[in-house]
């Protein structure tokens, strides 16, 4: 216990870092749920694809430098590599999100609710296991993600901040502020809010609802893809299985903050990150190989749904059922 208390501040910093990743994924859930009332189970797997595609791009373009230097780049190459990783993740995940919506969910737009939900699970299974087949087929079971920057601990005000957390603290807030601006201050954002409120009325006002829904999926998937890159940089690994659990935790975050509520998703993400980080730290101080973090997070989810189903900041979903 002592060991746990001593490292508590550092634990909280780590929780902040993973919490920001969960927040980014949670935003995608909340955006889609706000408009379609659909839990996009495949969202977590799109997150995983972001890490995977950027891994492939980095191997392709910077493979030589990365291989020689244990994944550490310097100066201009580093900036280039990071921009490339995010760019590839953005484009590919945006594309995947668009395709999923267009071919799996749109045909079921007016079907009973069970149908799109089951389809979403199916899509999630397809992505996850297609990557598994690819990984086993090519013998890439353990994908080591290049760390790109020097791994070191930076002391700030008595805290020990790992250098890789800096990437999270820089990129995640930029993306979140960008999203808030997009939804709050642009014409498309206004259309998104209108569609979320009442599709029929939005259509009467001349909004192309299908386009707005596609756009929402793309935005959500882009955020998830970027979160995938951040995750891969943070943990230095990526594989087919990370999407499921990360997605589930991010969904917990979205519900915790109040589904459909963008600020809520951010807050929820941070809280889930902290819970996970604290429980992990307790586990580490108690024994080897313990995994109580996930049960703890799901317990939080159940408690929220039982005692405050609208989440901390209040759900912004009109019950259309």
């Amino acid at each position: 216990m002592n060991q746990f208390l001593q490292s508590l501040p550092d634990t909280l910093v780590q929780g902040l870092a993973i919490g920001m990743m969960y927040a980014l994924i949670a935003l995608g859930y909340t955006l889609v749920y706000g408009i379609l009332e659909l839990i996009n189970f495949a969202h977590g797997d799109v997150f995983m694809l972001g890490g995977l595609f950027s891994w492939a791009a980095l191997q392709h373009f910077f493979g030589a430098q990365i291989g020689a230097n244990y994944g550490v780049l310097g100066g201009g190459t580093l900036v280039m590599a990071i921009i490339l990783a995010f760019l590839i993740a953005t484009v590919s995940c945006g594309g995947v999100g668009f395709v999923i919506e267009r071919f799996a969910y749109r045909p079921l737009r007016n079907a009973p609710k069970l149908a799109p939900l089951v389809t979403a699970i199916g899509v999630s299974f397809i992505i996850e296991n297609a990557v598994l087949v690819w990984q086993t087929g090519t013998g890439n079971m353990e994908l080591t993600y290049p760390s790109l920057i020097n791994q070191q601990i930076i002391p700030v005000l008595g805290l020990h901040i790992p250098s890789k957390a800096i990437i999270v603290f820089v990129t995640a807030p930029i993306l979140m502020v960008g999203l808030l601006y997009l939804v709050g201050n642009t014409r498309m954002g206004k259309a998104m809010r209108a569609t979320a409120q009442d599709q029929e009325a939005a259509r009467m006002m001349g909004i192309d609802v299908n386009r707005v829904i596609s756009f929402t999926f793309i935005v959500g998937s882009v955020l998830a893809g970027c979160a995938g890159v951040i995750y891969a940089l943070y943990y230095n690994s990526i594989d087919y299985s990370v999407g499921f659990l990360a997605g589930l935790k991010a969904f917990t975050a979205a519900v915790l903050g109040g589904i459909g509520n963008i600020r809520g998703a951010m807050l929820g993400g941070l809280l889930v990150g902290e819970v996970e980080s604290i429980v992990d730290s307790i586990d580490a101080s108690q024994g080897v190989g313990l995994q109580w973090a996930e049960p703890a997070v799901f317990l939080v989810l159940m408690c929220v749904l039982i005692f405050r189903p609208t989440g901390l900041l209040g759900a912004q979903v009109v019950d259309k059922a």
């Binding site: 589930l248 917990t252 519900v255 109580w292 049960p295």
Partner: peptide
């Protein structure tokens, strides 16, 4: 809870049972 929330809660329950079974083995908390 409405249908879709129920799906998530049951999913979480499944994961909890799985992890509890793993964690209550030898060498656990």
């Amino acid at each position: 809870l409405r249908g879709d929330y129920l799906a998530i809660v049951t999913l979480g329950f499944g994961e909890i049972v799985h992890k509890v079974v793993v964690n209550l083995g030898p060498g656990s908390t």
